[in-house]
Design a protein around this nucleic acid. Structure first.
Lengths: 348, 348
DNA sequence: AGATATCTGAGGCACGTGCCTCAGATTTTT
DNA sequence: AAAAATCTGAGGCACGTGCCTCAGATATCT
């Protein structure tokens, strides 16, 4: 049996009350006594029974996911995963809500963050493009004792925030490597297209892409990034123009997580020439295109994994534990037609 | 606040004792009453407080991982992950042990399984190559009320076992696709090499590999599988012979999860000609080779994910819940030099 | 010295569920 | 109608921890 606080008390030669004060960092215990208790903890290998502790505290972990209001299929998938896990995690006294904010307006993100209080939430996962205002608001959250993870958007491992998501520089590099490998022609131009280039994420992907393309495939050169801004008409126009101006386009990199509009335009105006396409994220649409071999490869971050990872991080921080870095590493997954998991072969 | 059994009792117009009987499936409750309680459960959205339940039962989930005794780096990595998660999960009243059995001898696996009793273990994750004897012993485990998942080895979604691991057919197909893409030459032979071909897993990988290679790269043809059986000398000999006999070898697929011996032989005797190599699993050795570009791509199942997934499945079965299939899907990950996560950029 | 501040112990209630006993109510069987 | 079987209610203890109060002990200051 695992030792309890009672055992601890006996081993340390103190009362349960004192053990309790030490365990929960309450004041009024002599330094010497604290150390005696600590020694006993180490000696017995005592670990708090979290079930009992949560029960006693009637503790509920309240986490919020802050997502942009506008978005396409990838965002919808994320939202679905969050809801799904919310349902599952209720059994573990974890309550998860999502909140959509108008992301175009940093001020609104900031206002939302400023309104969060320790009374109503224990941790927040923030998915928002970088801005100094948001960063400051986030810092203030931490000061108020609310735990934070940067979700999907942001930078890997920049304190004091935990980050959950892929390394976008590496993702761009991976895209270049795949595009080069799957593209038969040794020379030509590569179209790079995105919904928008505003965020740091896009910049990083582009950087990694260019770097690797130049290094490994000197024959291929990437065009400046086209931006579609969710507008089909505009997308069609700029893509058509690009194909007209550059007859030697041999590959396309759809850089943004939302790929619908760019893909539509490329498929419609690239015709047979748009053969080697690399895009991001798994959605109904991209999977369909992968199956029909219109897309060569997808670069994916698993929505289920990122959600679980974010929750684990928030919970670990709430409990004052140090999260296990190795466990929370989000892999850059590569999806081909071949390793696309078939729909539900079992485990029902 | 979440409704409690007390609320349930009041809502159903019965006593807490009756609610309890219904919740825990104890006999002696009239059908009509059962339904009344069920109705109240649905109406209130009642969910058992697992913390409280576990506390009350002093319940500890005892799971065992059965691994082969002999193995190389991949097995060591798995073992390490299991140990690591064992430490973390103690906080959730989950105790995990590993047990190593001499896998070459199915009889010993069977004997080990036969000795497991409900008194000492709640669930077992079995990693063992297929055999009718093991299968029977596993079925008897289930009859005794011990939950089982097939771990790494086995078949996807064959009842009545849950399976955790990748789809090996798809893994082989993926390997072929990558080999073909990264290999510059349109024609030539491909060496396929493995530690051993005994298991169903290897057979499936080979099948998927051949299928996709033939379909997508008609110029490439795969040689019969070479087997190294952990023997460096033997490996060197057969690989050298293959390179001698077939001057047009342009790629190598190292099919087994343990890649050390085959890789050594290929690198030593293939020289410059062994340029496009695809292998399995992430180990110190394979990562090093990926970095130095001796290997083109790795096909990987994440040890941390499979371990977590196995534990989630076992726990879900213990609690009588139906696991969420979508969550337990183990992806076939592809590792290139580009998407190799750098060692620990943050989150410490 | 007395007054004050600091530390410690004893005890108890609460959290929500599991599991037990025992008595009483209702129905079914003999 | 009596006996037996079936169902239900009331109550209570236990699990391990958090948090509270109050009294007593010891150290420190005036």
């Amino acid at each position: 049996m695992r030792p309890t606080t009672k055992d601890l008390a006996k081993a340390a030669g103190v009362s349960r009350a004192t053990v309790d004060r030490v365990l929960n960092g309450r004041p009024g215990v002599h330094e010497k006594t604290v150390q005696a208790v600590q020694a006993a903890i180490d000696r017995l290998g005592f670990e708090r029974n979290l079930s009992a502790a949560n029960l006693a505290k009637s503790r509920v972990y309240r986490f919020e996911f802050l997502l942009p209001r506008d978005g396409g299929e990838f965002l919808a998938e994320l939202d679905a995963q969050i809801a799904e896990h919310g349902r599952l995690l209720r059994a573990d006294s974890i309550e998860i809500r999502t909140r959509r904010v108008l992301e175009r307006n940093p001020h609104q993100v900031v206002a939302t963050l400023a309104n969060l209080s320790r009374e109503e939430v224990d941790g927040v996962a923030i998915m928002s493009s970088e801005s100094p205002q948001v960063r400051d608001a986030t810092l203030r959250l931490i000061e108020r004792g609310i735990n934070v993870v940067q979700f999907i958007s942001g930078q890997h491992g920049v304190r004091p925030f935990d980050f959950v998501g892929i390394d976008n520089y590496a993702a761009g590099a991976t895209a270049a490597r795949l595009l080069g490998a799957f593209c038969k022609q040794p020379a030509g131009r590569v179209m790079v297209i995105a919904e928008a280039m505003t965020s740091l994420d896009s910049a990083e992907r582009r950087l990694g892409f260019d770097q690797t393309l130049g290094l490994r495939f000197p024959g291929l050169s990437a065009l400046p990034t086209l931006e579609t801004h969710g507008n089909h008409t505009r997308a069609a126009a700029i893509v058509a123009a690009a194909y007209r101006n550059f007859p030697d386009i041999v590959g396309v990199y759809v850089m943004s997580s939302e790929a619908f509009v760019p893909l539509e335009a490329v498929l419609r105006h690239g015709g047979r020439r748009a053969r080697t396409i690399v895009a991001h994220e798994r959605t109904a649409r991209t999977v369909e295109l992968l199956k029909s071999e219109m897309i060569a490869a997808l670069i994916v971050q698993n929505p289920g994994h990122v959600v679980r990872s974010a929750v684990r991080l928030l919970k670990a921080r709430c409990d004052g534990r140090t999260p296990l870095a190795s466990q929370e590493d989000i892999r850059i997954e590569i999806l081909l037609k071949e390793n696309l998991a078939l729909p539900d072969k079992g485990t029902a």
